[in-house]
Amino acid sequence: MTLATQTGKLPVERRGVFSKKLSGILEPYLYVSPALVLIIAVMLMPLILGLSYAFRDIRILNPFSGGFVGMAHFQTLMSDQAFLGALANTAWWTFGSLVFQFGLGLILALLLNRAFLGRGLIQALVFLPWAVPTFLSGLNWAWMFNPVVGPLPHWMTSLGLMAEPYNILSDPDLAMWGPIIANIWFGIPFFAITMLAALQSIPKELYEAASIDGATTRQQFISITLPFLAPTIAITLMLRTIWIANFADLIVVMTKGGPADSTQIVASYIFTQAFRRLDFGYASAIAAVLLVLLLAYALSVIALRRAMTHSDN
C-alpha cells in the first residue's frame, strides 16, 4: 500500500520539480518580455539600421538609391555650412533654454516648498504649461510674438525695446529667442517638480538641528539644501541638456529653422532632411554625428563628476 502510493506519486513530483524550477526562473522574463520586444524592435533595431544608413545612399523617392557610399555623407557634412551653423545654434538653444529653465525652476520649487494658503491650487496652475502639448505651446507662442494677434511686440514697443511692433521670429538676429522663451515656459515645471520632489525628501530634523545650532536661513540653504539637491541637480541637468538638444518640436512649429537657417538646430535639421528632402542617408549621417557628440558630452560630464568627487576625498 505504502509502496504503491510511493511509486505512484514519484513521477508527478518529478514533473512538479521540473515545471516549478523552470517557471520560477522564467517568470521575471515573462513580465519583462513585452517591453523588451518593443524596445528592441522599435528603438534598438532602428538605431542600428539608422547607423548603417549613414554610410548608404537612401533617398525615398529615388528608386536607384540604396548603394553603399562609405564616408561620403560625412565628407559632405564637414563642408555643409547649414550643418555647422546648426551645431552652433544647438549649443545656443540648449544652454539658453537650460539656464533659465533650471534657475527659474529651482526658485519656483523653493517657493512651493513652504506651506502657504492655496499652495495645492497654485502648484497645479504653475505646472500646467508642462501639460500643454508641445506643438500647441509652439503655435501659441508664435501667435504671441505675432504683432497681428499677439501682445508681446506691442509691449516691447511701449517699453522702448522696439521701434515699432514687428515679429521677432522673422528677424534672423532675434528669432532664436522665440523658441527659447517658449521652451523656458514649457520646461520650468519639469525642473520645479523634480527639485520639489528632492526638497521634500530632505529630513526636516536637519533644519531643526541647524537652527538650534544657530544657522541662519542662508547658512541652512548653503549647508543643507544645496548639498542635498546637488545629486538631483547634476543628473537632471545632464539628462535635460541631452533632451533639449534633441528637442526639435518647438523650432519646427515656430520657425521651421528659419529665417535663413538662423534657428536651425541639428535635431530640426535631421528632421528637415528626412521629412522634406526624404534623404534618409544624409539625415542618418547627421544623426550619427549628433549621437556621438551627445555621448561624448555625457561621458565627459560623468568623468568630470568622478574626478571632482575623488579630489574631495
Binding site: 517591453a35 524596445i39 522599435v42 528603438m43 534598438l44 533595431m45 532602428p46 538605431l47 539600421l49 539608422g50 544608413y53 537612401i58 525615398i60 539628462l239 541631452i242 538638444a245 534633441n246 526639435a248 535635431a267 535631421i270 528632421f271 528626412a274 521629412f275 534618409f280 539625415a283 542618418s284 544623426a287 550619427a288 549628433l290 549621437l291 551627445l294 555625457a298
Partner: peptide, 21 residues
C-alpha cells in the same frame, strides 16, 4: 541600463529607419 540609455538618445534619428521598417 538599456531602458535608461533609450531615454538619452535622440529620437529624431529613429525617424528614417522607423519609416523604412
Amino acid at each position: 541600463a538599456l531602458m535608461l540609455i533609450t531615454q538619452m538618445f535622440p529620437l529624431v534619428m529613429l525617424i528614417a529607419p522607423i519609416f523604412k521598417i
